[in-house]
Design a protein around this nucleic acid. Sequence first.
DNA 1: CTGAAAGCGCTAACAC
DNA 2: GTGTTAGCGCTTTCAG
Lengths: 379, 379
Amino acid sequence: MLHLLVLDRYGHFMARSMNARRPATLASLAAELGVSRTTVSNAYNRPDQLSPELRRRVLETARRLGYPGPDPVARSLRTRKAGAVGLLLTENLSYAFRDPAAVSFLEGLAMACELAGQGLLLVPANPEREDVAAVHRAGVDGFVVYSVPDDDPHLASVLERPVPTVVCDQPELELFDSVGIDDRAAMTSVAEHLIQLGHRRIGVICMRLSRDRNDDLVSQVRQREAHFHVQRSRLAGLAQAFGAAGVDWEGVSVVERFDHDIANGASAAAQLLDRDPQITAVICTSDILALGAMEEATRRGLRVPQDLTVTGFDCVAEAERLGLTTVRQPVREKGLAAGRLLTDPSDHGRPRRVTLPTELIIGRTSAAPRTTEERWFGP
Amino acid sequence: MLHLLVLDRYGHFMARSMNARRPATLASLAAELGVSRTTVSNAYNRPDQLSPELRRRVLETARRLGYPGPDPVARSLRTRKAGAVGLLLTENLSYAFRDPAAVSFLEGLAMACELAGQGLLLVPANPEREDVAAVHRAGVDGFVVYSVPDDDPHLASVLERPVPTVVCDQPELELFDSVGIDDRAAMTSVAEHLIQLGHRRIGVICMRLSRDRNDDLVSQVRQREAHFHVQRSRLAGLAQAFGAAGVDWEGVSVVERFDHDIANGASAAAQLLDRDPQITAVICTSDILALGAMEEATRRGLRVPQDLTVTGFDCVAEAERLGLTTVRQPVREKGLAAGRLLTDPSDHGRPRRVTLPTELIIGRTSAAPRTTEERWFGP
DNA sequence: CTGAAAGCGCTAACAC
DNA sequence: GTGTTAGCGCTTTCAG
């Protein structure tokens, strides 16, 4: 049989037989060699099943014909294994690389995948467009869902797929393996710290509570019905602690921001301080927002913590460097745990739950509020 | 036909016919409905090809039977599209999330993928184990290769695959689309800046030059034969500029570090300063290494830039914050460009090359060297 | 608008 | 060691 050696536009040598001008397949290779497809398959997948000599011949002919080895998709179809884990995020794919906490999570997840020899497929599930197709297209053996709202249509599609799924942080799904922390308790510890310092007049900044944008104050109803369980729990933790300390929670301003970046933290703090210049502390449900709040404080000439206490959540690197009072949560370990749960072959009956520990980090951004007198006459 | 509704351990409803206890497929759904497979397929992929009423029936029966929609792998096999882009990195998967430059690159690449509706598959190609299988398993429509040495076996496997490939930074491959910067010219600009300031006695710290570990001085031969083209070019740029300024390049200590982190930058600087305490500048081929060098300088009581000039490369966030003298390169844009090249459907004849601009950033870590007198008697 | 026919490229029993 | 058989689950012309 005659062959052409074609150099395609990508620089690949593509050998094609004259009769059928198509790339080589396992079958055509077998035909060329005069052996069965099994044998060729074995040459790639089970080297011990044929003589070294024959194997060499197969591989060499493959090279000559430009056969690139078994097609991964066809193999996946046959073996029912894709060799990859899918990741579903709330946000734009690229956001995951802008948010330090998400990056750490990914780092942990990537470690677990690598250990298991699995690829990690980032599924392009843009929350703006309800384009669920990408989830259906994903050739994966399982999904990790990271921090999405309970009513996300992409989530629904993931749950329909007949593959194991692990949820991290959100939402809370009884029937699935999950990884998370005790958000409520962690936030309560922040609140108690501030209460002990003497703060009673506070403001709160939180991340988005639902898929609809609300860059404004949050009503009690919205707080309770938030589709993001993590934010809901953190607010609940604050409400509980401050309520117990005699603070009327309904009177506490809670400002929400849809986009999670420093600029939004700053604008939220501005909104809070404009509304009530008397607040002595701004509690944020993330470090990024807290960083923004500190920026705004500086802009207004308020010293932190003398004039204003600011707290965050997560303990990302920059927050740590700045000595932010915050809650450390093991984000990378979350990713690792999620990946482990997913790739762990051990059969399990009921859904597993991993709850990781957190730690209150008391930094240099929280202090006792100054008395009114001090505010007017200096420390 | 009778059906069982089974709730499997992941909480998925799995409907199975009594005769064949297997998950529903498009074929079984068609049989159940008494229509052809085409019709069911159309219900999912070409809604305009059937009556809304029939479509509704199909979809509803699907739900009842627990049919999760067309299997993505089978579809991929048939359509010859995986809907994903593969990414090959030199390092452990998780490293990509630890290195700020790599994170930015990923951010850009993710943006491009999202725009094209493609997934992004991180291929677990651990450089330690020469396990090329993961590359062969990857169900992708194309690859992006990011900064790998020219003799990497994973790279070889990628190039064998009959899919388009774009190379970013390294290696230089004539036949493939590529994205990069002019590393040599960029580094020359750093050198000229230092030469102008009056530095003649310098030390250099670079990243790994080959796949074999060498945490030590680099010979001239090793410099010229480095398998990492980027490092090679940067060193060549320095050699050229300093050579032109009358500095004997062979006498300049160049220290290499295999692992790319701050601690290694520090230890390399220590090695350099131990070897020749008279050097007035430490030039690093990355910001991370430079950050380490600054740490070491501080440890020794050397003030930067009064006692020692330190320069980096990349302009990552932390370097910018510290006012490091460095080269800004548009890392995110590299990722974006690589993704665009790959997903751009426009047919092209010859390989395309995108060279992005760089900019010398003169910060607060470079200054004229002090004279010997000043060194002894103060400024 | 619907169906029949024809694979996509491969692997895994199981027999020889 | 090697070959035969039988699909994996789907899409896509092309007739009707």
